[in-house]
Computed example of a mutant assay.
Amino acid sequence: MTGFRGATSVVGVGTTDYFRRGTSPMTSAQLVLQAILRACRDAGADPRAVDGFVSYGGDANEGLAIAAALGVREVRWSSEVWGGGGGGIAAAVNNAAAAVYSGQASCVAVYRGLSEADDGRRAFAKGHLGSLYTAHGVLAPPQICALRTQRLMEVDGVPRSALEAVALAGYQHAQRNPRAVAYGKPLDHRLYEGSRMISEPLRLFDCSRENDGAAAVLVVSSDRAGDYQGRPAAILAGVQGAAAGWTDSVENEDRYTSAGFHPALVARLWDDAGVGPGEVDVAQVYENFTGPAVAAMIDHGLCPPGPAAGDFLTVENLTVPSGSLPINTAGGNIAEGFVHGIGLVVEAVRQIRGGSANPVTGADVSLLIGGPMAPLVSSTVFGSAATV
């Protein structure tokens, strides 16, 4: 463990509504501003006192521009995580925590916004598919993840039921979350199995949505968490990066069915957090597609590899109130809504701070996993006061 453990906390969260892609009446900047203002209201914070801004995944809204619109007194930190798409969601939180921990900022907003009419089609995937992909007919993210998922099933022996369980768990949680896009639209085995194939073996319900919207969280020093209202969610540990044999290698990865979380990175996460995978009470797992989410849970030691993954990854085990590892408790990218995964950050914090539509009773350790099977990946462990 390091001095970083528990030194910073999230003290506010804010979200906008989810809009069907291209239908938001607001620009992405307006959505981001609304989310940050709501996070400030949640924390009882003065928006003008926010002095740091962090985003990821090619967000079009620069921190300085957002700061000017908010009327902040001083900008002391402004950064964006490079590469990895949704792999940057936890990395953005980690960067904000590092800025606060090092004294470079005192209150950092971590945010992501999308408005397709403003940002363009599939703004979250710009730059991901180079000429070596497109020359061979790989034109969209599901095709890349389908190749890896097929290998995960055929060679590693992970059963399709594990993928289905991830999708059904998200939909089940969404039925108790009125904000979710899939609220009132339950999913069962018949609908899942009967849905059209997008890129074999990924079916329609294995794929995340695309939405307009925004969300934000505020990161401060834990020593100052008492200045804000509500329960803080302590940041116990965070990791990000890629090992040799991974990154932008265009399908030449040594561990092709991994989600990209190499063993050293995962070991560092648990060592720094002072907890193990068996102590995780709830997890928000970035599911651009269900296959990568399954691989990410295997990488983190949350479930066994191979055929045994199907025994652990069941709907009953992945859902509240009685599952041993509830995941994506607001519905996730698949069922709540997709704004490049920022909703998963908010839900990971709400499980500690309060406000989840599907709270896990007595949750002390909340795990956030970002961007599986992306060039850059990241994770963050949040904890309650009892863990610090």
Rank of each mutant, 00 (worst) to 15 (best):
T2V: 13
G6E: 14
T15C: 12
Y18I: 05
R20K: 13
T27W: 00
L33G: 13
L33F: 01
L33V: 09
I36E: 06
I36V: 15
R38W: 06
C40A: 09
G44C: 04
D46R: 13
R48V: 11
D51G: 06
D51E: 08
E62K: 14
L64N: 11
A67W: 08
V75S: 07
R76I: 04
S78M: 06
S78F: 13
S78V: 14
G84W: 02
G88K: 07
A96W: 14
A97C: 11
A97T: 08
A98R: 14
S106D: 15
Y111L: 08
G113N: 04
S115N: 08
D119Q: 07
G120F: 04
R122G: 04
R122N: 12
G127W: 14
L129C: 09
S131W: 12
S131H: 13
Y133E: 05
T134A: 13
L139V: 11
P141E: 07
Q143W: 06
Q150S: 11
Q150Y: 10
R151H: 07
L152I: 11
E154Y: 09
R160V: 07
R160S: 09
A169F: 05
Y171T: 11
Q172S: 13
A174W: 05
R176V: 10
P178H: 07
P178G: 07
V181G: 09
P186R: 02
P186K: 01
E193D: 14
I198A: 00
L202G: 01
D206C: 09
D206T: 08
S208F: 00
G213N: 09
A214L: 02
S221L: 05
S222D: 12
Q229G: 13
G230T: 04
A233H: 00
Q240V: 06
G241F: 01
A244G: 00
T247L: 15
D248I: 13
V250W: 10
Y256E: 12
Y256N: 05
P263V: 02
A267L: 02
L269Y: 03
D271V: 07
A273Q: 04
A273I: 06
G274Y: 11
G274F: 13
V275C: 07
P277K: 01
V280L: 03
V282M: 01
A283T: 05
Y286R: 00
T290I: 03
A293I: 02
G301W: 03
P304Y: 02
A308Q: 12
F312G: 01
T314A: 10
T319S: 15
T329Q: 02
A330G: 14
I334P: 02
I334N: 11
E336T: 11
F338N: 15
E347G: 08
V349P: 10
Q351L: 12
I352M: 08
G354W: 05
S356I: 06
G370T: 04
G371P: 10
